[in-house]
Design a protein around this nucleic acid. Structure first.
Lengths: 206, 206
DNA sequence: ACCTGAACACCGTTCAAGT
DNA sequence: ACCTGAACACCGTTCAAGT
């Protein structure tokens, strides 16, 4: 006989994201998610196919948290607003960023956000290959900055010894040493907006 | 008594990258790498600390394969050349891209490439925060495009059904449907260069 | 210093059985 | 339709022992 599923998709997404936020990526396992839901590991297989689907639950949870701005009459404002909303959502869940960058989800949430960005760029007068390039460039910029804060040699919170090492070997890495100094007083928001605006200006001029 | 290490760092890097190239990320384990080197799993702990270090071996192997161009007298040419070299190296190892995007390596290879890019941008007259923003933006663009080819809803080789689905739901995703059409005849190299040049032009104008 | 096998706790998943 | 425990192959790693 039929039964209502024990867990909704939203419940699964929320629980998976909680684990990643609280304990990190490695802590997300079939068993840990089941335990958090108060059930046994095998029950999850009624809702997902593979372990890899747990990663998609996290990506979809973060994507669903993106607060898209209302479209205005200025496509440039809209593109900035959407890109910022994406970036902010990612930054709110730093542990999940590697998944956001590398997992391919095709949920409605992901397509909705993509569509909003594509439409805003299209309203800027782009079509065809130009629109494709602009779309990829903006998405790339968002992902790149989100990740740069975590992973670049000039990450906002570097391993601590890294900037020291670059500066100690200043003769070998003079340019990086200079950048590293600037990165100490880094303002991520201003940097992201600055890069995004430069990109949009360049795309527009082309 | 002292003994020369059984495996060089380069040997470990090459073997790890081979596994990822041939069998995918999930196939890279302590045991599989040891087996490929013809030894037991425990031997690896003489060369690395954790499993996570295997990922860094892969990143360093790919980074070491980057062929940096000779500096010219045109910083713009240099930046494009370095960015392209990075992008090409990543594309030559598509299975490794998720690691390149998300793992933080501080090897000399990574710092050398970063330094080359930072210096080329600095030769364009940038300093301080402007240089930092330009550095992050270019790095972000490279990573973003490398990943976009794999993961975006408009990936070059989408799951197949994805573009169909977007187009079938054309009324819901009209803008994405248009982009998806363009993506079918996509030329990754032209797109990457187009986006990079737009970015550089925009950065320069700011 | 470096190598290595045995052993342990943990993981994803198959199977078979339950309602 | 959906839930679940037992069991298996596999993984990272500790420990103790070898040269």
């Amino acid at each position: 006989m039929g039964r209502p599923p024990k867990f909704s998709r939203e419940r699964l997404q929320a629980a998976a994201l909680e684990i990643v936020d609280e304990e990190g990526l490695a802590a997300l396992t079939m068993r840990s998610l089941a335990a958090r839901l108060g059930t046994g590991p095998m029950t999850l297989y009624n809702h997902v196919e593979h372990r890899a689907d747990l990663d998609l639950l996290v990506v979809d949870a973060v994507t669903a948290s993106v607060r898209l701005p209302e479209p205005s009459d200025d496509w440039r404002v809209d593109v900035e607003g959407i890109a910022c909303a994406l970036w902010q959502a990612a930054r709110a869940h730093p542990q999940a960023i590697p998944l956001i960058l590398t997992r391919r989800s095709r949920s409605a949430a992901v397509l909705d956000v993509s569509e909003a960005l594509a439409c805003a760029l299209a309203r800027g007068g782009r079509t065809g290959a130009d629109l494709l390039v602009a779309f990829r460039a903006v998405i790339g910029m968002v992902g790149g900055f989100a990740q740069a804060e975590l992973t670049s040699p000039l990450a906002v919170e570097p391993a601590g010894d890294v900037i020291e090492r670059i500066q100690a070997e200043g003769s070998r890495y003079p340019c990086l040493a200079g950048i590293a100094e600037s990165a100490r007083g880094s303002e991520p928001e201003a940097e992201f907006l600055g890069a995004l605006r430069a990109l949009l200006a360049g795309l527009n001029a082309a």
